[in-house]
Design a protein around this nucleic acid. Structure first.
Lengths: 166, 166
DNA sequence: TGCGGTTACTTCAATCTACAACTAACCACG
DNA sequence: CGTGGTTAGTTGTAGATTGAAGTAACCGCA
């Protein structure tokens, strides 16, 4: 039963990188959530939903598209959007051209809430992620993550850098 | 209340990097969990707990230390370890020198289960993370993540690369 | 028109996580 | 000693996420 084709183990540099990736993965969401929750009453995921909507034409997106752009499963998104709708920040309506589909649209209240939350969130992202990185590190990190995404998200569904509003 | 010191917005390169980091953050856990769950019946977090124990002297660690090394809160760890104990993979015992503290130790069954799960998990990590990266990218990624960790985990509690077993 | 197969979501049940008490043990100091 | 304050963990509960199943609308083709 000797499995000689067993993939080689991680060497030390790889193991270090792996532990760090996992650590960031576990700790960053908590940091972001905590700041947003405290200052704006949002989850980071909720913030993402609002942000993606605000960048979309008509501030409206189909659920499926929104799910892809926020890297979320559809059930999860469905629940979250329902809660946001209950809070009056988002409105759902059946798409006229395809009655299976649902358009989620940011309300004015939702836009205002997002605008109020944004500066604090931005400051947090800068403080925890970009401040400690040099420009070259930002670019290198970005490239490495893009490479990983090709494997983790083979369809390339994650939010493309369509530099929207600019 | 005009906040003129509003931090500057992310430029395009930063925004791209940020979206990619968030995307990896959201998608990678799912990919890892799915492979482990299917092939071994573990969560990635459970796997981490077992792995950290197996690398520790005596295959034993205090709950608090284990929590730091797995980037978990104590309540979460407590629940997970209890479930692992119910499955006979871990044993808990009061630490003799400090009766508040609890030592979690990997059982032989736990070690065996980890050994069985490891190759598949390793293959998954290689396939999704390291295969698409060049050696330089691995190193650059590692450095960038280390820099972020200094802000996200200021105490440096994440698992140090004590190049243990090698 | 009608039937089978997708697609787009929602809902349900089970699991997991987080936040907030709560318990027990340690420690320093009077 | 013993009292107050901290540390180590656990538990309880409420809220969130997941995977599976369910519903409704679309599409192609006979």
């Amino acid at each position: 039963m000797n499995d000689t084709s067993e993939p080689r183990w991680l060497d030390q540099a790889e193991m270090t990188a792996w532990l760090r990736l996992v650590a960031v993965n576990e700790r960053l969401p908590g940091v972001l959530d905590q700041q947003l929750r405290r200052e704006s009453g949002f989850t980071h995921f909720e913030y993402q939903v609002l942000a993606m909507l605000s960048d979309a034409p008509e501030r409206t997106l189909r659920m499926t598209q929104l799910g892809l752009q926020t890297n979320a499963t559809l059930p999860r998104l469905s629940h979250v959007v329902k809660r946001l709708e209950d809070r009056g920040l988002v409105e759902r309506s059946v798409a006229p051209e395809d009655k299976r589909a649902i358009n989620a649209a940011l309300t004015d209240d939702g836009f205002a809430a997002l605008a109020e939350a944004a500066p604090g969130h931005l400051a947090s992202v800068r403080a925890h992620v970009f401040d400690p990185l040099s420009r070259e590190q930002v670019l290198a990190l970005s490239e490495a993550l893009a490479a990983i995404l090709t494997k983790v998200d083979p369809m390339g569904d994650a939010p493309q850098d369509r530099r929207a509003t600019s």
